[in-house]
């Protein structure tokens, strides 16, 4: 009985340890990620929320209750997005376009790195002393390795339920990676042209072309699976 009581008291204590500041921060993060509001807009709404909470606390409500009521009075994210879209057209457009842009940039980065690999494999082969006839094998291995790393990375994200891609899809990082890869491709090609036969580049190009074809096919398959499975999940069966 004693242990039951102490457990009960502990649970109630935890309930009372409601962290108001943390909850407000969570609300602010949700707003910044899912609405068309600027940082300034969110800071202003936060100050409004604080005023509202302050008044409710004076009435004798708890932190959690005050926050809940104040949040409800301000309105949900959809309502705020509609209201703010009247003045924040540019932000709304920017927020909508950014995920697409990030997707395109991420794809371009991946393709640029893949394009760099044939030249890298020629360099490695020359260093180790592999015959030019086997160059395409080195190139294929490197491309498989790149794909494998990418798949393992995404599988881990999927398994942990962590879909936060902010670091990976950071636009400046992606853009600089593309630029650096392109410069490296150009430099390595000019250096290698002196010592490697042009036909070798042709073979490597063919390998890369084949890889890109397979990769495209892979993305198409994944897209089809995701499209049909999400359609299936959203379907509501109407009862006769």
């Amino acid at each position: 009985m004693d242990s039951y009581q102490s457990n009960y008291i502990k649970i109630m204590e935890n309930r009372n340890k409601f962290n108001l500041k943390h909850s407000i921060d969570v609300w602010k993060t949700e707003l910044s990620q899912n609405s068309n509001m600027t940082r300034d807009n969110i800071d202003e709404l936060e100050s409004h929320l604080q005023d509202e909470i302050h008044e409710l606390l004076k009435l004798g409500l708890s932190n959690a209750e005050s926050l809940l009521i104040a949040k409800n009075r301000i309105g949900n994210i959809e309502k705020l997005t509609t209201e703010y879209s009247k003045v924040n057209n540019e932000v709304y457009f920017r927020n909508t376009i950014t995920p697409y842009l990030k997707g395109i940039l991420f794809f371009l980065t991946y393709i640029s790195i893949a394009e760099l690999l044939p030249n890298l494999s020629i360099l490695i082969a020359k260093k180790i002393g592999i015959h030019e006839g086997y160059l395409h094998l080195v190139s294929i291995e490197l491309l498989i390795l790149l794909t494998f790393i990418l798949l393992v990375f995404f599988y881990k994200k999927y398994k942990h339920g962590n879909f936060n891609m902010q670091k990976l899809t950071n636009i400046p990082v992606l853009v600089s990676t593309i630029i650096v890869s392109k410069i490296l491709i150009y430099l390595s090609t000019t250096i290698l042209l002196d010592s490697v036969e042009v036909s070798t580049f042709g073979i490597m190009g063919a390998v890369l072309y084949g890889y890109q074809l397979l990769f495209g096919l892979f993305i198409l398959t994944i897209s089809c699976i995701i499209y049909y499975s999400s359609r299936h999940a959203h379907k509501i069966k109407i009862a006769k």
């Binding site: 202003e44 709404l45 301000i74 309105g75 309502k79 209201e83 003045v87």
Partner: peptide
């Protein structure tokens, strides 16, 4: 005025 609706009006006046 609704809590969330006044601010867009204020921002419009500011613009």
């Amino acid at each position: 005025y609704g809590d969330g609706t006044l601010y867009p009006v204020l921002h419009k006046l500011e613009k």
